[in-house]
Design a protein around this nucleic acid. Structure first.
Lengths: 203, 203
DNA sequence: GTCTATACCAGGATAGAC
DNA sequence: GTCTATCCTGGTATAGAC
């Protein structure tokens, strides 16, 4: 890890804990183990560090959407095969996975907090936060559209299904993210809610 | 409105827009129309203004929980009567009401944002934010427990029902609060989600 | 209880030696 | 590319007159 990368990393940790304004350049330099003046050899300003974090976040999210995305390739047969195997346990595991990803992923857990704190500061910040909302809903909507199409789920409004699937995860993320929480009961709750969701909609 | 009250009011507006750290004592004094030095005749520090806001928020929420609470008095007959009249439209209206309250109420719309921004700063701040989460869930859980008991809703887990009812509202509040949004489509969405909720659970 | 003036310091950023 | 030293702005808070 270069010094520049370490600056971004430590800044993300500090910004996500105390906010952008609540973090001083000296805080960051201390965490990296250099003097604050030295930091300006890598970034022209504190704001530039923030910009680097945001830029990296987009890359991380891009990678995530590929990870969680539909199976690659446009072979319809392959896609159908993928969804045919979706059952109760798979759906519950998917919910738990999404939840745990945002909560414990080294990058996302910090960025989630930061994004939530800074969303009101300017439209660009809000745009990123919106990815956590609309990105989730849009992905799930496509997922359930496909699952209705191939007959695994009952006919219905896939967008409402997406809200019903994702909203409880979103709420519990807000409850736990950055705070003390008990993992097992919370994961249990995610499981119960999602299980009930599956039972309502599956054929 | 006394000067002291106006300070608290303007401070809430500014804090909720730019955060506690992002707001200066001079910003507040300017908004009130006095010099920053004069402000210290009313509050000993910037932090004390914040404390006053938090204290007032508790009072507001207390009032809300009475407004939205079960019909007053312990007359069981009266309570049962209240719930007997709950139908599809009532439930949808309740959802829209809760949503609109947090989004447009002069005090709550500002405090929601502030609370969301400052929740990570200290445990006390988080405790208040938690009221938006657990307070909602707990209230709805009691509501649905009662509605199952008197036979309006099917047997089921009232806590999961509460998550299913409240989470989408919570998510949409995070999406809209403090940002540009179109009211009608959003209220429509709240209505559709809640209508589907009612159809799933009512007898 | 509002004002002017000011103390005080923290934090962002630069200069220049090594 | 790191350091020491320093500048400068702006923000919290106080003193004291009216």
């Amino acid at each position: 890890m270069t010094t520049k990368e370490r600056i971004v990393d430590e800044a993300l940790t500090l910004f996500s804990a105390k906010g952008f304004k609540g973090t001083t350049v000296k805080n960051i330099a201390d965490a990296v183990g250099i003097k604050d003046a030295s930091l300006y050899k890598h970034f022209a300003s504190k704001q530039e560090i923030m910009d680097a974090i945001v830029k990296e976040a987009y890359a991380h999210m891009e990678r995530l959407s590929q990870q969680l995305g539909f199976p690659s390739g446009d072979a319809i047969g392959e896609t159908a095969q993928y969804f045919k195997n979706v059952d109760r346990k798979k759906i519950i595991d998917l919910a738990k996975e999404v939840f745990m990803f945002y909560l414990t992923d080294n990058y996302m857990s910090r960025f989630w907090k930061l994004s939530n704190m800074e969303q009101y500061n300017n439209p660009e910040q809000y745009e990123i936060y919106r990815v956590f909302i609309d990105g989730g809903i849009e992905y799930q909507t496509r997922l359930f559209t496909e699952m209705i199409r191939i007959g695994i789920f009952k006919k219905g409004d896939p967008e409402i299904m997406a809200y019903n699937f994702y909203s409880p995860i979103f709420l519990l993320l807000h409850k736990c993210s950055g705070h003390e929480y008990e993992l097992e009961p919370t994961l249990g709750l995610v499981g119960r809610i999602t299980g009930e969701f599956y039972d309502r909609y599956h054929k």
